[in-house]
Amino acid sequence: MRDAKTPESQIRNAVHLCIDMQNIFAPGGLWETPWMEKVLPTVASIVSRHQDRTIFTRFITPQDPEDRPGQWQVYFRRWRQATRLHLSPSALDLVPALARYVPPARVVDKPAYSAFSNPHLAGTLVEKGIGAVVMTGAETDVCVLSTVLSAVDLGFKVVIVEDALCSSSDVGHDALMTMYRTRFHGQVDLVTAEELEEFWRE
């Protein structure tokens, strides 16, 4: 019987979507994600092996809350210090350990949680014949979650590298791991970084 943690088949025609590994989420950042330091070496190892297949996303905050629609205005009034009017520009940069891989790795900026809130990303992947996305990054239960669900809706196979995710909530992270295992069979696979290298055939 297939191990629940290994993909049903080889991973082919895939890109690595590394979500929001930015200084704002790093230790000392405004939205510090404590696990980031722990998973960063694993993420960097994946990137180093698949540099030209890696797309980094960056969550770009608005200049002013009123620059975003609806409830985003409420959100950024609460987090006004995260708007670009108040935030250091370097806070939105990739952490240095990953920025060094650009290029050949690419960067896609997004205004909301999902990587696919950048309208050009899905079209680019389809044009290149990409059938699967390998997911790492921050945070498990916010931007990664939103990107996973968008990718599923768009028909991509999703492979989540569970030891290359970070969150500020243990409860949220664990709940999402359970949901992926029990609710998305055939659309979402969970693997370790070691298993990824065994199954990913570019």
Rank of each mutant, 00 (worst) to 15 (best):
L40S: 05
W72I: 00
G186A: 02
L30H: 10
R58L: 05
V39P: 08
W72F: 15
F156I: 04
V158S: 01
D141N: 14
D170C: 03
S146P: 11
A112C: 11
L176T: 05
M1G: 04
L87H: 03
R106V: 15
D153H: 06
N13Y: 06
G28R: 04
R80T: 06
M36K: 00
P62R: 01
P62F: 06
T124E: 13
V15T: 06
A138Q: 06
R80L: 13
D170S: 12
F156H: 00
L176E: 13
L30M: 10
S117C: 08
D20G: 11
E37S: 15
E195Y: 03
E32R: 04
L17Y: 03
E8W: 06
L121C: 02
G131I: 11
P34C: 01
L40T: 13
F56Q: 12
D109K: 08
I130C: 06
V107I: 15
P62W: 01
A122L: 02
A175G: 01
L87V: 01
Q81R: 08
A164V: 07
W200E: 08
K157M: 03
T54K: 03
V108C: 14
M21C: 13
T178I: 12
A164R: 10
V102S: 04
V134M: 02
D3H: 13
T57Q: 04
F116W: 08
G137A: 09
Y180V: 02
I60M: 02
T42N: 10
V47E: 06
D189T: 13
T192N: 00
V107G: 08
L30S: 09
W72E: 07
R84Y: 02
W200T: 10
G28I: 00
E66V: 04
E32D: 01
V134F: 02
E32W: 01
W79I: 00
F199G: 06
A82C: 14
L196W: 02
I19R: 05
V191G: 09
F184Y: 15
T192V: 03
V133S: 04
S146V: 00
K5N: 15
D52C: 02
A193C: 09
T140M: 05
P65G: 03
M177V: 12
V15W: 01
A91N: 09
L87K: 11
A97C: 09
V161I: 12
V158Q: 04
E8S: 14
A138S: 07
Q71M: 12
R12I: 13
L145N: 10
E195F: 00
K38H: 07
H185P: 00
A82Y: 02
T147F: 09
G70T: 05
I160R: 06
K110D: 10
R2V: 07
D174E: 15
Q73V: 09
G131A: 06
V102M: 09
S168R: 11
A82S: 14
Q73M: 08
A175Q: 09
A82D: 14
P27D: 04
K38A: 04
M36E: 07
N13W: 07
Q187A: 10
V39G: 05
T57G: 08
P41H: 12
M1D: 07
A99T: 00
L176G: 05
I24Q: 09
V152Y: 13
V47F: 11
T61C: 14
A91G: 07
